[in-house]
């Protein structure tokens, strides 16, 4: 009897989720939906695909790291495409993906070498470089802050790109802007993000860049609480609207585009395993349009940012993404 019941339940679930169309399951990391950055951006990509193609979109949120393997497994069992996001999921995905050769996986921020996994990496340092340069140009106190989530490679790329941007500003303009950097230790703790931002404010920073997922929302809140003259810099998505006038800009990483492209490749039958790196050049990385803060920035600085952007795209300026590369980084001669 029990056996039939179980089989029946399984059937209900499977029939409920698998129709004729392609079923996509998005497995979030522990940050979950509602982080207004990384996970939300990936989900936006899934929804974009659902609107355009005959795709049913579903989501499983992970409660803790131990859920990654069970959630990926459960998702792979009932879907055609599994979207996994976050470097922290790399080990789990490497175990699960080879067991489901007929399921296609789209993985953001890490690399799993399996023919059914399409990996997307970003050159986060390029966007961080631009916001770092802007922060250095805009600071009134000569100090800017950086709040990271957990020091994993994508977040380190943000940090060193940002610091390289500040350094470039210093060299090209004969300034001496300093960077205060810290790590919260998690991607899902806005309170900790806020308290670290506040301590950077009290140490004299007036602009703080947060690359910390949900924790970074605390940085934006802190900037708003601190009032006029303080700014946060958002990450991953355009977060400027979260506190209009207090978010100077956002270093955008178009996770949604990557996820959408991945699903599109499955729909169109062009999916192939491997690694795709998105950069400033192909618009995978960028700065927010600065809807609320544009008027605060002097015109010449926008011009300088455009020149730098072009130098990065042309390969004249290689932005460091690791500690070693940053230490070896020499600011090239750039004429504005």
């Amino acid at each position: 009897m029990r056996k039939y019941l179980v089989a029946f339940l399984a059937l209900v679930l499977v029939l409920g989720t698998i129709g004729m169309s392609i079923t996509v399951f998005f497995v979030t990391d522990t940050g979950g939906l509602g982080d207004k950055s990384f996970n939300d951006s990936a989900w936006a990509g899934v929804e974009m695909a659902a609107k355009k193609y005959d795709v049913t979109a579903n989501v499983i949120q992970s409660y803790e790291q131990a859920d990654y393997i069970p959630n990926l497994t459960a998702a792979a069992q009932v879907s055609d495409v599994v979207v996994a996001v976050g470097f922290m999921m790399q080990d789990a995905l490497a175990k699960v993906a080879p067991q489901f050769p007929n399921t296609k996986f789209i993985f953001i921020d890490g690399v799993v070498k399996s023919p059914n996994v399409e990996n997307f990496l970003f050159k986060e340092q390029q966007g961080a470089f631009l916001v770092g340069y802007l922060a250095a140009a805009m600071t009134k106190t000569g100090k800017v802050g950086y709040v990271g989530g957990i020091p994993i490679p994508p977040v380190l790329r943000y940090q060193y790109g940002y610091e390289a941007g500040v350094k470039t500003y210093n060299v090209l303009n004969g300034a001496n802007v300093q960077v205060l950097s810290g790590y919260v230790g998690s991607f899902d703790d806005p309170a900790a993000g806020k308290s670290m931002t506040n301590s950077q404010f009290s140490e004299g920073a007036d602009i703080v860049f947060a690359a910390a997922g949900l924790s970074g929302l605390g940085t934006i809140e802190a900037a708003k609480d601190a009032g006029k003259g303080h700014f946060a810099i958002g990450v991953d998505q355009d977060q400027d609207y979260l506190a209009p006038g207090y978010v100077l800009t956002s270093a955008m990483k178009r996770v949604n585009v990557a996820v959408f492209d991945g699903i599109k490749s499955v729909v169109e039958g062009t999916f192939k395993g491997g690694t795709i790196t998105l950069t400033l050049k192909d618009n995978g990385i960028g700065m927010s349009p600065m809807t609320y803060t544009k008027q605060l920035v002097p015109k010449p600085i926008f011009h300088q940012l455009d020149v730098l952007k072009k130098a990065i795209i042309d390969g004249k300026l290689v932005v460091p993404g690791t500690k070693e590369a940053f230490q070896a980084f020499q600011v090239p001669q750039i004429q504005f």
Binding site: L13, T17, N58, Q61, Y63, V78
Partner: peptide
């Protein structure tokens, strides 16, 4: 209920 909640999300109910 934790383990089951993951399956519940597949059925479309939030965790």
């Amino acid at each position: 209920i934790r383990a089951g909640s993951n399956q519940m999300q597949i059925a479309g109910v939030s965790k």
